[in-house]
Design a protein around this nucleic acid. Sequence first.
DNA 1: ATGAAAGCGCTAACAC
DNA 2: GTGTTAGCGCTTTCAT
Lengths: 323, 323
Amino acid sequence: MSNIRDIAERAGVSIATVSRYLNGTGYVSEKTKKRIQQEIEKAGYTPNALARAIFTKNSRTIALMIPNITNPFFNQMATVIEDYTNKMGYSLFLCNTEDNREKELECLEVLKSYRVSGIIASRSQCKEEYEGIKIPVISFENHISPSVITVSSDNYNGGRIAFNHLYDTGCRKILHIKGPHNFEATELRCKGFVDAAYEKGVNVDVVEFETDFQVQILEEYLERIKNIEKYDGIFVFNDIAAAVTLKYLKGKGVKVPEEVQLIGFDDSFIGELLYPALTTIRQPIKEIGTLLIELLIKQINGEKVEVRDYLIKTELIKRESTL
Amino acid sequence: MSNIRDIAERAGVSIATVSRYLNGTGYVSEKTKKRIQQEIEKAGYTPNALARAIFTKNSRTIALMIPNITNPFFNQMATVIEDYTNKMGYSLFLCNTEDNREKELECLEVLKSYRVSGIIASRSQCKEEYEGIKIPVISFENHISPSVITVSSDNYNGGRIAFNHLYDTGCRKILHIKGPHNFEATELRCKGFVDAAYEKGVNVDVVEFETDFQVQILEEYLERIKNIEKYDGIFVFNDIAAAVTLKYLKGKGVKVPEEVQLIGFDDSFIGELLYPALTTIRQPIKEIGTLLIELLIKQINGEKVEVRDYLIKTELIKRESTL
DNA sequence: ATGAAAGCGCTAACAC
DNA sequence: GTGTTAGCGCTTTCAT
């Protein structure tokens, strides 16, 4: 691969001039511009972003750490983020953490070594490990440390909305299938749900699942619930798990929503594909992704941002799995 | 962020020694090792991979270009690739091309500037643009140029298998919902299907959809098919479109598989979630992802690889949407 | 076993 | 307008 020196030589100018041309900084006469451009094309030259980054101290890369890109919620978020990242002239590193502390830490080391301009951590399993780091970080869902901004949906209120919807449609024997306990989001969804139930004087059963989207494992957990058909309303912590639950109920000959009403969480595209289509609590993925990247880039640019929790509103998406 | 010089100074050695220590190349006495390690930890120093890359001419990064990470097939593939990439000590850049030539070209420029070690292009909409490039490239599905290896499933045979399955279960009024024409894969699936039908003396109808996974648009296309219920067997070009078709049929009160049998393609996780569970043609995602990255890394390492088409076997996954 | 110094590809301050 | 040069953080010969 040719370098700036080659181009300069062939164009009969100094490397400074080529650099100026490349960056549009400083004066370069039209004639030399032409010559330089010609040589660049002839040589198929692309400036080395690594060398540039080393000098400017800005690699123009952003890292997205997510539990798993296969999870529809996260891959929809990734799409929004990747798009915005590109539009801002940055490139995206992808890291699947598998909700695993060790993996997350390994990623973090690598990302540091690449001097990424910023990091979006989601559902982080770490805390102080992000302390010394001199790279702007923003967190989705789980809190990392007081100095790191956390963005999340209003999961607590989402839980409340879910309960009230089931209650309003007549459910009184209610089950909540709760997600893993190391996810702040699922804890809050559960708490909101239970609190709202308490206020109505209704008792709800809660069972905890230890995976958020592995179909087979979800099925195994479902089988452990005795007499699931005795409930008339079920709130599941995410859409995938709700989809599996729906299938499980249908397999048992239980009619949804006539006999059991079902409500999910996320509003990932999967809900629309189901029959009956899934009622769910929507997390506005696009807004979340956009806010994350906006706040991160502001930090990268040294702009002041308020360090606090940013809560995005959740809302009911009423479809066919509830009455 | 501190650099190798800082560490050297504080440890009272030269930068060469620190470098040797860092890379495990050349002799460093146990004592100095200790001292250096101490200073590294005290300073929270991480070697700059960019500077290293500029010298070694290997950034240890791999780029994955895919149409869209939201597509279950591609995000499952991405998971496999990300994992393997990390295991080999590389990091992954993610680029969504949206099946858009311009976007793909823009990505390509950026990736060149970052001097990525290798590129995995999927369903590329480009050809010669990859010519001059001095970076190892491997392609999934669409062919780029004679010098670039293409890996894909045996789509043609997959189409044949799909037809023969429908035929064997008694279907004679058969429809194929075909994917966009700029995807080599969907063309081959169609050809295999139609060829197999021809051999049995059966005529099949074919309609082409111009999106591969946008639910709303898929629904619109479905509505344009008149009397879809007149068919007794439908082969859909991928699982998502099959899921939407299933839902559409159910909405019309058509019983699957009793009245219409349905078969998809991909074996993405969505098929299991449906009710009835979707019969499909499996593309072994893990094998594909692994082969792609293996062949790419071999090229990166300068090992000889046979430049030819690599075809991965497809197979029938019989579930409940067919008899 | 360790250090000095050249060089990787680039930017930018400064001189002309 | 353009060139010279120092320096970004690193690796690696070649001395010692």
